[in-house]
Amino acid sequence: MSGVDQARRLRRIETLARTLDSKFRIPGTGIRFGWDGILSILPVAGDTVAAGLSAYLIYEAYKGGARKRTLTKMGTNAGVDWLFGSIPVVGTIFDVAYKANTRNLKLLQEELARQAPPQA
């Protein structure tokens, strides 16, 4: 895969993670949230939609060459987010705080840094 394709893929993943986890801010606080937290208002159904978007992020990581170990960690983060996020009321707070997609973005960035050839 070319460096340009990899950069585009990473930008898509970054945009999706930001949209799901931290697109909005509550003024006067440090609290940021995204569509994952908003969708969580509808227990189970909203979290299932958000999990599908998280699965797309993981799929993009797979297509970008992430190792199985990294993909497993990403899947675990998404699963924890879905499981606890599906609990009414408490799950919405959990979704806003946990930020599984941001965690997965960080895992992917670390993976890509590990794969990058050393600079001479």
Rank of each mutant, 00 (worst) to 15 (best):
G3I: 07
R18E: 14
I31W: 14
P27S: 08
D5S: 14
S2A: 08
E14Q: 11
S2P: 13
T19I: 09
T29N: 03
R12Y: 08
I31D: 00
A17K: 10
G30L: 10
R18D: 15
M1S: 09
V4W: 09
G30E: 14
I31H: 05
L10D: 03
S22I: 04
E14W: 03
F33M: 10
I13D: 02
E14I: 04
M1K: 05
R8D: 14
L16K: 03
M1R: 04
F24K: 04
G28H: 11
R12G: 01
K23V: 06
L20Y: 06
L10T: 05
F24H: 07
I31C: 04
A7G: 03
F24G: 02
R18Q: 12
R11N: 09
T15Q: 04
V4Y: 06
R12H: 08
F24P: 00
I31V: 15
P27M: 08
T19L: 02
E14L: 03
G30V: 10
R8I: 15
G30I: 12
R9F: 01
K23R: 15
R25D: 12
R25L: 13
T29F: 06
G3E: 11
L20W: 10
G3R: 10
V4A: 05
L20D: 01
E14N: 06
I31R: 03
D21L: 07
S2H: 12
D21I: 08
R9T: 06
T15S: 05
Q6P: 00
T19S: 03
T15R: 12
Q6T: 14
R8S: 12
G28C: 07
F33Y: 12
D5A: 15
G3K: 06
S2N: 13
Q6N: 09
A7R: 14
K23Q: 14
P27W: 08
G28W: 07
R18N: 10
I26T: 01
T29K: 03
T15G: 04
F24N: 03
P27D: 03
I26L: 04
A7N: 06
F33H: 02
L16M: 13
F33A: 02
R12I: 00
E14D: 09
A7P: 00
R25T: 14
R18Y: 13
S2L: 10
L16S: 00
T29S: 05
F33I: 05
V4S: 02
R12D: 01
T29E: 06
M1L: 10
T29Y: 06
M1W: 12
G30D: 13
R9N: 10
I26E: 00
I13Q: 05
D5F: 15
R12M: 04
K23C: 07
D21N: 08
T19P: 00
Q6V: 14
R11S: 07
D21E: 12
V4L: 13
R25E: 15
R11A: 09
R9V: 06
L16G: 01
I13R: 00
L20N: 05
A17N: 13
R18G: 11
R18L: 06
R18P: 04
D21G: 05
R25P: 06
T15W: 09
K23M: 14
G3C: 02
R18C: 09
L16A: 02
Q6C: 13
R32E: 13
A17L: 11
F33V: 08
A17D: 10
L10M: 11
D21A: 01
